[in-house]
Design a protein around this nucleic acid. Structure first.
Lengths: 216, 216
DNA sequence: GTCTATACTCTGATAGAC
DNA sequence: GTCTATCAGAGTATAGAC
């Protein structure tokens, strides 16, 4: 029988209510941040535990003390991000002004591409390779949220408050246009020159685009 | 000194004018097609020579008889595609009707996403990881072409024949929107259900979008 | 030209000392 | 908790027979 003084039988990061020390929390956070950097730049297969450990300032075995495997690091990273990923769309308010709501959503997504480009590339890498680890998330939570908001947008169209456009394609277009600035930043930088911020002018352009497209 | 009857000193696929037999041509073509399939789905690091060889119906050493290395396969694949990749934009005619030309360019790109999704994902994989192997191509050929066409579009704007929009962002928007249907097809399929063609309705939506945005 | 066998390297993961 | 050492497996590439 375990006594109260025994250490938890699980890894310090396991899902149970295992209490973690400050050092453990700090190291887990460092690992996840390093993993975000490496996975987003090289994809899952292209990343190595060694790279992540070095980036986090730890040895390889020490990293594996905190996470069971490379896959466990990746999963922890993804699940930490999934909820934040839904936030901007969740925020779209069915009772607000249609144009304002959609434009605000676009701007929030654009801001996320600027602030969290690594997260965007992490998702892009996953989806590009068939979304094996995101299948459940996309086909349940994300799908439900998209369908819900698509109904709102469709209603706005029927009521003549915005132009009648396919609401799914409208949402996809916002994803495509805003995430492009994070996911394809390398290309934009090579075309416009490294001295420009890739997103310079993007917000004005997208404002023009969606204002025109949505006018009733 | 080589005599006329000597076989070429290079691999059958080397860049010199080495004559290749029909079998050689057929096997090289098979390998490149298999490599496109595998690289576009798994990225460079995620792909294995074994997978490509199996997909091509060859043994691993036999594949390496035709190409020096995994990298050589990938390079051959990319350089075979680069020129085709520029074609739609090259086709944009400075003497044509502005709206027609831009809409046609968008539709050609959308058609390419439908017809050649693997090529699109191959490029996306490369760019997402910082474009290490495409740096030269993007910063020279592609950049020059984009700048040239951007000037045409800017002139159309100044002449009042279309709305004045940032021409680079306009081109990026066409890339983002059309390639999204190839690169993120997995996500679209999971959200709309596998029974829908991801591109259903896309052309109508994009026609509406660009017609409205470009109206003078 | 194609195969079997194999050398070699990289990387994920573990053992065990401290 | 962290390290050094090491194993096991995968994967690239080569040697050499046929």
């Amino acid at each position: 029988m375990p006594t109260p003084s025994m250490p938890p039988a699980e890894k310090p990061g396991a899902s149970g209510a295992a209490p973690r020390s400050r050092i453990q929390e700090r190291n887990r956070a460092r690992i996840l941040d390093a993993a975000l950097e490496v996975f987003s730049n090289h994809g899952f297969r292209g990343a190595t535990i060694d790279q992540i450990a070095t980036e986090a300032g730890l040895s390889k075995p020490n990293l594996l003390y905190y996470f069971d495997s490379k896959d466990a690091v990746h999963s922890a990273l993804l699940s930490r991000l999934l909820d934040d990923w839904l936030e901007p769309l969740r925020h779209l308010d069915a009772t607000g002004d249609p144009q304002t709501e959609i434009l605000s959503y676009m701007r929030r997504k654009l801001a996320m591409s600027r602030t969290y480009p690594r997260e965007s590339r992490l998702f892009a890498n996953e989806i590009l390779q068939g979304a094996p680890r995101l299948e459940r998330f996309i086909s349940t939570e994300l799908r439900a949220l998209v369908d819900e908001k698509a109904q709102v947008i469709a209603r706005w169209g029927r009521e003549g408050r915005i132009a009648e456009v396919d609401p799914h394609h409208l949402i996809f277009s916002i994803w495509a246009l805003t995430q492009h600035y994070a996911d394809f930043a390398a290309q934009i930088r090579l075309i416009r020159g490294a001295e420009h911020d890739p997103q310079d002018g993007a917000e004005a352009f997208l404002n023009h685009l969606y204002t025109r497209m949505l006018a009733p």
